[in-house]
Simulated scan of single mutants.
Amino acid sequence: MTDMNIPQDLLLSKRDGLPDALRALIKAYPRAGWVQNPNYSQLIAFWLDRHMMFRRLLDQLDSDVKAALDGAESQDVYKRKLHRFGGMLINELHGHHQIEDAQYFPVMAKLEKNVERGFDILDTDHHALDGILSDLATSANGVLQHGGATAGFIDAAAAFKGRLDAFHPMLNRHLTDEEELVVPVLLKYDPPQFR
């Protein structure tokens, strides 16, 4: 499904939202009315909950690294948290994106041809996020493998914080755009395979 011919201004690192042509369904099915819609399903609730989990994990990783950098948390305690929450974020995001690319997006793009291009954009986001997640994991491993002086640990943690700060807005942009495409399609069509 991936169409790598996405205009530069619609790449995840550049855009501040989807173009108006891809936002027609979100206007017809605004976020404020999702839960009240009769087609709001357990799948939608579960899927949105997964997105909330990703946002919470990012917030947790951010507060933990700040505590480590401020000296409010020991290296050992921080490393345990980073291993747990960082691993959870990376592994869960990879699995989530694989299911979307293989199962959900192709079906939804066929249901609503007017937003098919939006699913291409989201698929391209997933490929971009894979590379960013790999860099994030490498940076986290630099922290986890550090066993020396405090100064080196602080440098490694600061480098991880920088990667995390760059990743956070891009993941949030992707999740928001994805929600504003996927949920309206599910509300409009209530496909039986996704109930």
Rank of each mutant, 00 (worst) to 15 (best):
E92Q: 10
N37C: 02
D59I: 03
V35P: 00
Q60S: 01
F119Q: 03
K161E: 15
Y29K: 05
I44S: 14
A128L: 14
H127Q: 14
F153I: 04
D155R: 14
I26R: 14
A24Q: 11
V143W: 05
Q75V: 08
E92I: 01
H126I: 11
A67T: 02
I132K: 07
A157G: 11
L164K: 08
I121S: 06
L48M: 12
R163V: 02
A21R: 08
L111I: 04
N141D: 15
L18D: 06
E116W: 04
L43W: 11
I154A: 12
P106N: 06
R31I: 06
I90Q: 04
D135E: 11
D155V: 09
A32W: 02
L129W: 05
D20G: 00
V143Q: 08
V65I: 13
E73I: 10
A156V: 12
G147M: 11
L136F: 07
L25H: 01
D165S: 13
F153H: 14
P19A: 06
T150L: 07
I99F: 09
A109L: 06
G17F: 05
Y40C: 03
R84F: 09
L69I: 05
A159F: 13
V107H: 09
F54E: 08
D76T: 02
D130S: 15
W34R: 03
V143E: 07
G152C: 01
L18T: 07
L111V: 08
D64R: 04
Q42P: 00
Y29W: 02
Y104S: 05
L57A: 03
D155K: 13
I26F: 09
A158T: 15
L61I: 03
K81M: 06
Q145Y: 11
K113R: 12
R117V: 10
Q36Y: 02
A128Q: 13
R117I: 06
A24M: 11
A102L: 10
V65N: 05
R55M: 13
V77I: 10
K110Q: 14
A24K: 13
I90R: 04
Q36G: 13
I154R: 15
I90L: 12
A32E: 14
E100K: 08
A149W: 01
Q98Y: 05
I99R: 13
G87H: 06
A151F: 04
D101E: 13
A45I: 00
G95P: 08
W47M: 08
Q60G: 00
G152W: 04
F153P: 04
D120V: 01
K79E: 11
H96L: 10
D120E: 11
F153D: 07
H83R: 15
G87I: 10
K66Y: 05
A24S: 14
A157H: 13
F46R: 13
D70W: 09
L164P: 01
V35L: 08
Q98I: 10
H97F: 15
A109D: 06
D20Y: 00
A156M: 12
G147D: 06
G147W: 00
Q42M: 04
K79H: 02
Y29A: 07
L82M: 14
H127K: 08
Q103H: 01
V115Q: 11
G142F: 12
Q36N: 12
